[in-house]
Structure formats: C-alpha cells, structure tokens
Nucleic acid binder design. Structure first.
Lengths: 167, 167
DNA sequence: AATAACTTTCAGTAATTATTGAAAGTTTAA
DNA sequence: TTAAACTTTCAATAATTACTGAAAGTTATT
C-alpha cells in the first residue's frame, strides 16, 4: 500500500468512525486530514483534498473549533486562514471525553435524577421505574467519571498501570 | 412529576441517547420500555405504548435480540411471544461494550494497523502518517481494552476501587 | 473609499436513514 | 388440513441529516 491509498483509507475510516465519538462524517474527515498533515492547511486545501464544498468546509471547521479540536493559525505573509488540529492523541481524547460528557452525558444524568426522584406511590411500576433509573444513573455517572479521570491523566502512568493490573 | 410523565421522559431521553451507545432511536426506546416494565411485554404492547408500527417493532426487537440485550420469554397459556430485557445495568453495560468493541472498534484497529505499516519511504508526510496512526492505534486499543476490562468485572469491586483511587 | 481576497450564511437540494403497512410466511389449535 | 393467530419481510414513503453554491458579509490592501 502506498502513501496516497493509506491516507485515503485512514481518512475514510476515521470519517465513518465519527459517529462513535459523536461527530459527523465531514467533521471527522477534516480532523483526520489535519491530523496527518505536516503543516497547517487552508480552507482551499481542505476543500480540494476531501472534495467537499466551501460552505461545508467552513461550517465543519467552525464546529471543530467549537469543540476545541482545531485552531486557526496565522501564516506570515499569507492573507488566508490556516488550520491545524491537536496532534497529541492523549490531549485529543481528553478534549473529546470532556465535550461529550458536557454535551450529552451530563444532561442525561440530570434527566435520570429527575425521573428517579418522582414520588413513590407504592405501586409496583413506580418502584420499578425508580429502581431502574437510579441504577442507570449510578452506572452512567461512574463510567463518565472514570472516563474523564482516565483521559485526564496527562502523563498516562495511571492508565498504563491500571491496564497492567487488569491484564 | 407523575409516573406517566416520568416514564415518557425516561423513554424519550434514553431513545435520543441511543446514538451514544450506537443504536437507533426505536431500538433504544423499546429497550427503555422493557427496562422499566415489571413484566414481559408482547409486540402489541410495545407497538401501542410507543406508537410505532408492527414492522418497525419486529425489526428492532430482532436487532435487540442480536445484540443479546432482549430475550423472548414464553408466558404459559399465551400464544404470542413476550419480550424482556436484561435488567442488571452492569450486565447491560458489559454486553454493549463487548458488542461495540466487536462491531466497530476492532475493525478500526485493523485498518489503523494496515495504514501504519505502509513502507516508510523516508518522506515527511509518510513519517507523519505512520507516527500519527500508530499513536491513534495505541490509544484506541488501550481505551477499548480498559473499557472491556472494567465492565467485565461482574462484581464491580475493581471499578469501585479504581474510582475511589482517582477521586 | 474602492476593490480584491477571503469567509460565512442559508435556502434549496441531495443523500441517508427510519418507518409504515400490507402481503407473505409461520405456527398452533381444533 | 384448515383456519385463525401471530410474526416477518420489504417496497414505498416519510423524516432526518448533510451538502452545495451563490449571495451577503468581512477584512485587508491600495
């Protein structure tokens, strides 16, 4: 396999994996492209490489910047804007975990809290609803906390040692 | 908040959360309904409660059974089939983690391996592609392993102690 | 202050994904 | 073995989501 093929394979795989970490295809592909690029790219570069429209590129770059995954960089002597992504995978994971937690998991925990605190009228079905939503709330909270703690370890000694412990 | 409202809130929240654990809305809602139900439900029950068609119910129940989350139960004296879901959240998490790993993460790791093992022709861009995809492969593998190990602990002493350790 | 270089917005459209419902299929009971 | 009770399948359609491209907006240069 040659460079070009490998590059395309990486970008398309990472793109279709976007759903796993909660972002859309174009967003994931732009991030992938920047991730393996040796220098910052302009909007024009990205459009041409991924064959997507200017509007699409602009919108998705914005979202990536909202997530804190991509940043604008100024290239001296150039009028247009250039973009680059976080290159360190640990830091990338940290950002993604934090954002997903904030955007999706925390709101769900809030709803589970509300639901599980309805008045217990003593009926079977109410008891079951309370019991099950409480259990789900606990689990969601534990996994959320754990994920955040893990990826937060800048030096990943803890992750490594936990992994070793468990093998 | 009364039972009915709480129930609807739980089902719709869990449904829209489906994307987070990789299944579609109807699938997640059916699972949610079964999860808080005190007894197994028939296809008819599910259709009526969630206001979805027979076909949709049938297809999504099948998928839930494929995942191993929902099982058929025979109710004596009844001709039709009844369904129930795994009620233990730990076990549920274990199944979901295992399935997602198998369906999505493992195949990605395979591609990352292929891509990162292209011939190093010494150019900058090739070196960058190899370096970055290798880093991503390591991280993906670590997180996958960790997640599986964690939810695999039937008795969750390890999870608890790791959580405590990290707080 | 006019113009060129560039970016953003958004209505329209395309692509994708989910849902319906009725016909075909299957199982059980009489 | 027939018919009723039930489930599955799948082509058609609806709903959702993503993408385009051109016009409007912004910023820098002369």
């Amino acid at each position: 396999m040659q460079y070009q093929e490998a590059k395309e394979k990486f970008i398309s795989t990472w793109g279709s994996l976007g759903s796993l970490w909660g972002i859309n295809k174009a967003m994931a592909q732009i991030q992938a492209l920047l991730f393996i690029s040796t220098k910052p790219l302009s909007m024009e570069d990205i459009m041409q490489d991924l064959k997507i429209s200017r509007g699409n590129t602009s919108m998705n770059l914005r979202q990536l910047m909202d997530w804190g995954i991509v940043t604008k960089v100024l290239v001296s002597g150039e009028r247009k804007e250039f973009f680059t992504t976080e290159k360190d995978v640990q830091e990338l994971a940290r950002i993604v975990a934090k954002e997903r937690s904030r955007r999706e998991i925390k709101p769900v925990i809030k709803v589970l809290d509300e639901v599980s605190s309805i008045k217990n009228d003593g009926t079977e079905k109410t008891k079951e609803l309370i019991k099950q939503t409480k259990a789900l709330r606990e689990l969601t909270d534990d996994l959320d906390t754990l994920m955040n703690k893990l990826v937060n370890q800048k030096q990943n000694w803890l992750t490594k040692s936990v992994l070793k412990l468990m093998k």
